[in-house]
Design a protein around this nucleic acid. Structure first.
Length: 381
DNA sequence: AGACAGTCGTTTCAATTCGC
DNA sequence: GCGAATTGAAACGACTGTCT
């Protein structure tokens, strides 16, 4: 399995870098090959620091810079067992290093950056430059699928896997990118073994939906979501969303709000709304939202507003999935349950919203959502 | 010959480095 | 520490090739 092989390489390089930069020696005790799609928190390896004999549960991350830091910190903290968690990454930039240190997450990387805080050993090395990828240009090639425009294409594939077999022009139209971008993204997905050619039909098909979903969910908050932010607001009434028909604003509930409706398993404490810019002022006025201050107001509910990044295909499919006409002018909210509810962002987006928060409560709900609503569709088309 | 599929050169943008 | 300059990557769309 080349995935675990590359992770093992990162770990070995990081240990070497730790040794040459901090003089600390460590040995790998055990590596666990992750069985593809599981989301259980199994460490990638176990490590022992020879100086102290201290053992670590290790999470190895390639492309650590492209991963949502909140979810990463949470992953490390949720590693099971009494031993402390350790992040081993290809590269930790200074800003990430600062945040990890603040969160008390120890790390090592292949460039020699490290934070080890296990008495009596204390190491803090940051600012070491990222190594140039000389003979190994594959990772940057794969990254192309997880850059802003690539994420649009990849999302369209996740939403409708049959799209990969369509023409570049059709893919470009649906995902709202240029034709040339589609070529780059498809090649990147092929290089990453997310996409391949079906031997029997000769057509493109997604070969690893689960892995592709994981990667998209990690990259999206960092690379694309923030670009669509319309602001952070507060609402006085914690139940405001229950009597707001978001469709009147051509909007969609995301995050905890949508998850609460989808799974019936969460009391949303933060609302996320995807709404076209031109309806922003109307929603703010009607729902009496106010711009959030730096220090949160005690009892007010936080509301994050974003403009939808996805193309109208998502809206069409949502209407189709719900198999009903979308009411235009009713003020009756439609939030009793997921079957009747409309105005919900696609489960993939809601799932990604929850994961990005890094909140353990949300992670549990995210898993439910994934199990119930995000299943790899039948590829036979 | 026309339509469609995929490639490649150019432009733009963002991140990093350098100099003050 | 800040702004300017540089570099490299991403995105676009015109162009070429292929098929019917």
């Amino acid at each position: 399995m080349d995935k675990s092989q590359s992770e093992l390489d990162i770990l070995k390089l990081a240990i070497e870098a730790l040794n040459s930069n901090a003089g600390l020696e460590a040995e790998i005790l055990d590596t666990t090959t992750l069985p593809g799609k599981t989301t259980a928190r199994i460490p990638d390896a176990e490590l022992r620091l020879l100086e102290t004999g201290e053992k670590y549960r290790v999470e190895v991350k390639r492309h650590a810079q492209n991963v949502n830091l909140g979810s990463l910190i949470n992953q490390i903290k949720r590693l099971p067992g009494p031993e402390p968690g350790l992040l081993a990454a290809d590269y930790i930039n200074p800003r990430m290093a600062e945040k990890l240190k603040e969160a008390g997450v120890q790390f090592i990387d292949t460039c020699g950056n490290a934070y080890i805080n296990q008495q009596p050993v204390y190491v803090l090395i940051t600012g070491k430059k990222q190594l140039k990828l000389s003979d190994n240009s594959v990772p940057s090639q794969i990254n192309r699928a997880f850059e802003p425009k690539g994420l649009l294409v990849t999302y369209a594939f996740l939403e409708d896997p049959s799209l990969v077999a369509k023409s570049y022009r059709e893919i470009a139209r649906v995902s709202a990118v240029a034709v040339g971008t589609v070529g780059w993204v498809i090649n990147a997905l092929k290089a990453g073994h997310y996409l391949g050619i079906d031997a029997s039909t000769g057509r493109r098909r997604i070969t690893n939906y689960e892995k592709l979903l994981d990667r998209w969910v990690s990259a999206w908050p960092e690379k694309l979501k923030h670009k669509h932010s319309l602001g952070k607001f507060t609402a006085k009434d914690p139940h405001w969303w229950k009597h707001t028909n978001i469709q009147m604003y051509e909007g969609y509930w995301g995050g905890e709000t949508a998850a609460a409706i989808y799974t019936n398993h969460l009391k949303p404490q933060v609302a996320t709304v995807y709404i076209p810019k031109h309806n922003l002022a109307k929603l703010i006025r009607d729902s009496r939202l106010s711009k959030a201050r730096e220090q949160g107001q005690d009892n007010d509910v936080l509301v994050y507003l974003y403009s939808p990044f996805w193309n109208t295909s998502a809206q069409r499919s949502l209407a189709r999935d719900n198999n009903q006409e979308l009411p235009k002018e009713t003020t009756e909210p439609l939030l009793e349950n997921a079957e009747t509810a409309v105005g919900l962002a696609n489960p993939i987006i809601v799932y990604a919203d929850l994961i990005a928060t890094g909140d353990p409560r949300n992670l549990e709900t995210a898993q439910r959502l994934r199990d119930e609503y995000i299943t790899e569709p039948d590829r036979a088309t």
